[in-house]
Amino acid sequence: MDDLDLQIFRDSLAKPQPPAGLSHALQALWWDGKGDWDKAHERAQEHEDSAGMRVHAYLHRKEGDQSNAEYWYRRCGTAPSTLTVDKEWEELARALLEQV
């Protein structure tokens, strides 16, 4: 886990399961990266910590539910992102990987 960076995280998307030991928030981003929004949403909801709420906000923004996204941005104390959703995913992944 210590050697997990953004490129290795992206490369792991080719596998059937996320790398062992990821937080729920990183698992959510991983499933989203594979195109499974529902599984990503499940993982984001599993822990209502700031990281989970932040990924939850991103997921609702990505699905086009801006009011729900804004609710989750407020809950985690973050301003709504103005990045593209792809850039927001990358920013979130980098930040969460730094915490591993």
Rank of each mutant, 00 (worst) to 15 (best):
W31A: 08
H24R: 08
D3W: 11
H24K: 07
G52D: 09
D49H: 08
L4P: 04
L83K: 14
W72I: 00
T78N: 13
Q27C: 14
Y71P: 04
H24G: 02
G35R: 13
L26F: 09
L97Q: 04
R10C: 07
A69H: 12
H60Q: 12
E48G: 11
D36T: 00
S81T: 13
A40L: 00
R10H: 10
A95F: 03
A93S: 15
A44K: 04
Y73I: 10
A93N: 06
L92M: 06
Q17N: 12
L6C: 02
R75I: 01
G52P: 10
V100C: 08
V85Y: 07
Q27P: 03
L92F: 05
A69Y: 14
L92Q: 09
Q45N: 13
P16L: 02
A25W: 04
Q27L: 07
R75K: 15
R75Q: 14
G77P: 12
G77K: 11
T78Y: 15
E98K: 13
A28W: 08
A14W: 01
G52K: 11
L22Q: 10
D38K: 13
H60F: 06
D36P: 00
D38Q: 14
R94E: 13
R74C: 00
R75N: 08
Y58R: 12
G64Q: 12
K34Y: 04
Y73K: 06
Y73P: 10
R43W: 15
A79I: 06
L97M: 02
E98C: 03
R54S: 14
Q7F: 03
S67Y: 09
A25V: 05
D49L: 06
R10G: 02
G33Y: 02
D32W: 09
A14F: 01
L97W: 03
K87D: 15
L4G: 02
L6V: 06
C76V: 02
R94G: 06
T82P: 01
G33M: 03
L4A: 06
E70D: 15
K39I: 05
S12C: 01
D49W: 07
M1G: 09
Q66F: 05
A93Y: 04
E48H: 08
G77M: 10
R61K: 13
D11Q: 15
E63I: 15
R74N: 12
N68M: 05
E42L: 02
R54I: 00
L97K: 04
K34S: 09
R10D: 08
R74S: 09
A69T: 10
A20R: 10
S50Y: 08
A28E: 06
E88G: 05
C76S: 06
S50V: 02
E98L: 08
D49S: 09
L22R: 09
L22I: 07
A14R: 07
E98M: 04
T84M: 09
G64E: 08
D49M: 04
V100N: 15
V55A: 09
S81D: 14
L13C: 04
